[in-house]
Design a protein around this nucleic acid. Sequence first.
DNA 1: AAAGGTATGTTATTATATAACACTATCTTT
DNA 2: AAAGATAGTGTTATATAATAACATACCTTT
Lengths: 169, 169
Amino acid sequence: MPPSGSPISPSIASRLHDHNHCISTAMETAQRICSDNGVRLTQLREQVLRLIWQSHRPLGAYALMEMLAEQSTRRVAPPTVYRALEFLLEQGLIHRINTLNAFVGCTHPQGDHDNNFMICEECGVAIEFCTEKIQHDIKDSAAQFNFTIKAQSIELVGLCQACTGNKDE
Amino acid sequence: MPPSGSPISPSIASRLHDHNHCISTAMETAQRICSDNGVRLTQLREQVLRLIWQSHRPLGAYALMEMLAEQSTRRVAPPTVYRALEFLLEQGLIHRINTLNAFVGCTHPQGDHDNNFMICEECGVAIEFCTEKIQHDIKDSAAQFNFTIKAQSIELVGLCQACTGNKDE
DNA sequence: AAAGGTATGTTATTATATAACACTATCTTT
DNA sequence: AAAGATAGTGTTATATAATAACATACCTTT
Ligand SMILES: [Zn+2]
Ligand SMILES: [Zn+2]
Ligand SMILES: [Zn+2]
Ligand SMILES: [Zn+2]
């Protein structure tokens, strides 16, 4: 398990990265995790995960549904998608972005980790990050209030590196 | 303007506090802020704000709608509520809790401030908190990615002090 | 093959939010 | 006071997101 404090490669933020590598890594990791957990990464679930991983932009359930419908002959209804999403969330393979009502692939799905995102409102990319410092401070604040944390969601909305640059020009 | 790092009175977390004081303070502050900003706190907007302030539990737009309908003779449709909510959000008098699709009164609506909540999944109370440390670390992380923050949402879901105690018994 | 559990299909419904246009109240200018 | 502009609200319809309930298919074990 990698140290939870290590920042995720910022190269994801850049638009120039080997995204095929992101996809293949994600799919392989997913297979392994499901196998380890004794659960089945069925065709549908695999298909949904792959669609989500087509980019680093969170996808809404209904967008996902349409993409599924295009790929297959069978009709696809909301529960089909939502059940797959629920499964992937449970296995920690994707995250839900509350600000967007959308879902994005997890970039480090091994072990427990926080759920912190920077979301670019220009290009739509969501960058997952996690730092021990923030996590420490949050635990600290919670302790002050005697609050027991069960889940957390940190979402920063703004402009990513590339889009900040574009705005300046 | 109070120092933004000072923690909000934890007494809100306790169920035993003078909530009438919360309400009257909130309504007076709202009047002043609207007056300062040169905008109108109309009857409807005042009514919605007061309903939101009936507790520290975030309220959904449709719950709010029903409460409005009970209070008045006229029919109340979604846009009525959403426009009032939009106004109150713009003036910084309320916050939207993304995790719940619900709205809660702001406990320190003066000046810019963060948007950090601890939400008790047992009693439904949302406690607004803000600390300079977290804010500093967040800016730090964003800087690492050259990310420009425009808005942020930190939501911790779990058990508040009172409800943690109850669970232990 | 039968049984039990897991996964998916199907239909209907609930929950949340916005678009578009009409009308009214309030403010500004004359 | 009257006219015009702006802001606020009413009204209808619709978009978007999520779940409930039940039927069917699939997979594993006996
Ligand atoms: Zn990638
Ligand atoms: Zn993750
Ligand atoms: Zn109170
Ligand atoms: Zn606030």
